[in-house]
Design a protein around this nucleic acid. Structure first.
Lengths: 193, 193
DNA sequence: AATGAAACTTAACACTGTTAAGATTAGAAT
DNA sequence: ATTCTAATCTTAACAGTGTTAAGTTTCATT
């Protein structure tokens, strides 16, 4: 952008490739994503990306991580604005849905072949999908505020239940050929137990 | 199978291609699906499929329709065994989940880029995803049995809610890297309102 | 038996992921 | 400052992909 002269070394090719990839799926969908186009978008030869990524799949995983970070930040921001634990839970659910409705192509991109691991029985595992951990914290805080003691089993179930709820909604709402009305989202999210 | 002699005309190539395609995604996943392999599996040249399908995408849509039929039959069978409207609703939900847990590769195949259209506001539209119509009928029957009168808005919301519920569960349960325990399914499905 | 349409083959095109071999360069070590 | 090394990039090639055009074989109807 700022440096038009072609130097042999790009300088920050790795990040440029990731962002070019995101750009392509934003504009033309996941099917249009190819190593050669990503390379071309960075004014670099077809083989150049292989200095930074093992394979196309590896690039995709890194792109997924990149999107997941954006997603997590979006959720964290939404949670910050809530002034109580129950509000936080609703805000989190709403944000979960809103993020993907504002960026429909990201939903299948992230969940078609998820790169993250989710160990539902080991909620503290640091390798878990970060948004998943946000849900857990939220439910813990909520029950603490309510003065309830949760068994590990109950916590598991609550997290899965909340997650499945919003995930199912957004999964349907972000389908092509599905006409979604926001009022459904508003009513459904209030059904969170 | 029964006719080893190669005749110039296959006889039933269209169906053979669809089933070969299903076979490939069952064994090696959706990424391994290629027109040439599908053709090869039927002992036919690379261009032969184009007498029956416009494009790879067209073949995929036909494969999706094929799987959707199997899925619908599976749901209908499960519903038949129920002896009350409320039982039918639970049976339908369970079957929805079980089908995809028994055939994990089908979930993303069907919903990644769904071929069907779903008009949530026009529940009677004949072009709607057939399993979706099953849900509608089930909820209508249930409320009728309960003597409740449902507005169109309430019906919409109930259908979406039920669908989102089981869809969310199976969406999470069928992710790779997710360890799913059947007891969650049993407990979650009982939360159907 | 003749004919036209449908089902197929062969051959080619542009595009894909990926690798091997070599060219260029930045930065550390001398 | 020079040398060396490792990282970064290019070119060229390979096998595999979707798809089409042109020609061949077969089926079904007359």
């Amino acid at each position: 952008m700022k440096n038009e002269k072609k130097s042999y070394h790009h300088g920050d090719l790795r990040n440029a490739l990731i962002e070019a990839g995101i750009c392509i799926i934003n504009e033309n969908g996941e099917n249009a994503l190819s190593m050669r186009k990503v390379a071309g978008a960075c004014n670099v030869s077809a083989a150049a990306p292989y200095a930074h990524f093992e394979s196309k799949e590896d690039l995709i995983v890194c792109m997924q991580t990149y999107v997941t970070e954006k997603f997590t930040n979006y959720l964290v921001d939404a949670k910050k604005e809530a002034s109580s634990a129950s509000e936080a839970m609703l805000a989190l659910g709403h944000a979960y849905i809103r993020f993907f409705l504002e960026n429909k192509q990201y939903f299948t991109f992230l969940f078609h072949q998820p790169c993250f691991t989710i160990n539902l029985s080991s909620l503290d595992n640091a390798e878990n999908f970060p948004p998943f951990l946000l849900f857990k914290d939220c439910i813990l805080a909520y029950n603490q505020q309510m003065g309830k003691e949760l068994s590990q089993d109950d916590l598991e179930l609550d997290v899965i239940s909340l997650w499945a709820h919003v995930h199912g909604i957004v999964s349907i709402a972000s389908m092509k050929h599905v006409t979604w009305e926001k009022r459904w989202e508003d009513e459904l999210i209030n059904l969170v137990r």
